[in-house]
Design a protein around this nucleic acid. Structure first.
Lengths: 212, 212
DNA sequence: AGTCTTGTTTTTGTATCCAATGGGGCTCGG
DNA sequence: CCGAGCCCCATTGGATACAAAAACAAGACT
């Protein structure tokens, strides 16, 4: 059950319960998850490979810090990869893909127009749906290598201030661009899909840069 | 010394001493490298993260097989990432970068024109220099995220038949394209550099596809 | 008073041990 | 002769024990 520990730590990092720069001690996590240090170590090695934490030999592990410049870089590479994926998806997606995208989109719209009860919960839901939307397009590109490369960056990206990113205007913009993306995919227009995706991600980068 | 084991296994895979599809048993590797199973396990987890091996829970680990389609995918994504890197590098590289690239190029030319003694050794040397060349351009892009994403794919790519790829005509073509790349970078022409790099990598993909 | 040094303590990294599961081989039946 | 089912063993995954190294703290010296 090293997988369980891996997922748990990952979630703690993504949720911000383990803050960037925070020191990670194996024994602490082992006790928290009621396991021995062995699976915790394994999980940490995997997380280091995924770029979530940084292991320095004999010294310890910390949750990786990212400078604003690095965050920009991540979004730029994402723009490159995901726009290519969107272009491919426009030529390769089938009706089922489009239906699923539309379903996700509907859920996102419902989540925003619904009663704004617990702000944080809504934001978390939006974030999850947003991730699913992008993942779906990567999948529709029918290029697993491309999808993996992009997904890796997406995951890292999502740990960067999940909350600050989704202010109300941001959500509106995101919904709008997602609609355009669906339109581009529906009309099988690779160039359009590519351009919209690039604009979408670089726009997100920009508002993130403005916030930091 | 898990790092040592990691590097050792990695080298065995890259050199083909551990063939694709081959089963990996921790105890065997532990004995071979004169270590316990613990660091071997750690190394295997890292290798799985890098996409070199595939761990199936409770069952075992095998060196990952790649279909020709996957290989093509890898080269296509490499083309995408590395051409972008070359474009950035054209705008950002300094004299030192160019000098180092030229030095690598000289060594490659020397290695090919020199006495063709042990064919295999020469090919191995060319391969290492080629990798260094591409790595250098990634570095010159001044985008660590882009460089990492591309380097990951490059490493996987190099495990795919290091030998078959470098027949004589291939080497000649590679040298020629590298010269063009240096020319494009020297004249600070991003569009040219990008195009040459894309052509270079897609060309390699093509001859690899033809060989398989 | 500040800094270097030294001793202690926490924590990492490795080795060994144990349980549980999957695969291979053997046997039995058709 | 071939296939299905069962049993044993090899191998993985986890826990614990131990050694070594680094961080921290306290004290002495300049």
């Amino acid at each position: 059950m090293a997988d369980r520990v891996y997922e748990a730590i990952r979630r703690e990092i993504l949720d911000g319960r383990l803050a960037a720069g925070e020191k990670i001690t194996e024994a602490v996590l082992a006790e928290r998850f009621d396991a021995s240090r062995t699976p915790v170590r394994s999980a940490i090695v995997r997380l280091a490979g995924d770029g979530f934490v940084e292991m320095t030999p004999r010294s310890g592990t910390v949750v990786k810090r990212r400078t604003p410049a690095e965050v920009s870089e991540i979004y730029e590479v994402r723009a490159l990869l995901e726009s290519a994926a969107a272009g491919l998806a426009a030529g390769r997606c089938d009706e089922r893909d489009l239906d699923e995208l539309k379903a996700i989109q509907s859920e996102m719209e419902a989540a925003t127009t619904g009663p704004w009860q617990a702000e944080e919960e809504v934001v978390e839901r939006i974030s999850a749906l947003n991730q699913a939307f992008h993942q779906k397009i990567l999948e529709a590109s029918r290029n697993a290598t491309l999808a993996d490369s992009a997904a890796r960056l997406m995951n890292i990206g999502f740990l960067i201030n999940t909350y600050a990113r989704f202010s109300h205007p941001e959500i509106e913009r995101s919904l709008f661009e997602h609609r355009q993306l669906i339109a581009a995919l529906t009309s099988r227009d690779p160039a359009w899909a590519e351009a919209v995706m690039r604009a979408h991600i670089l726009g997100a980068r920009n508002s993130l840069a403005a916030a930091s």
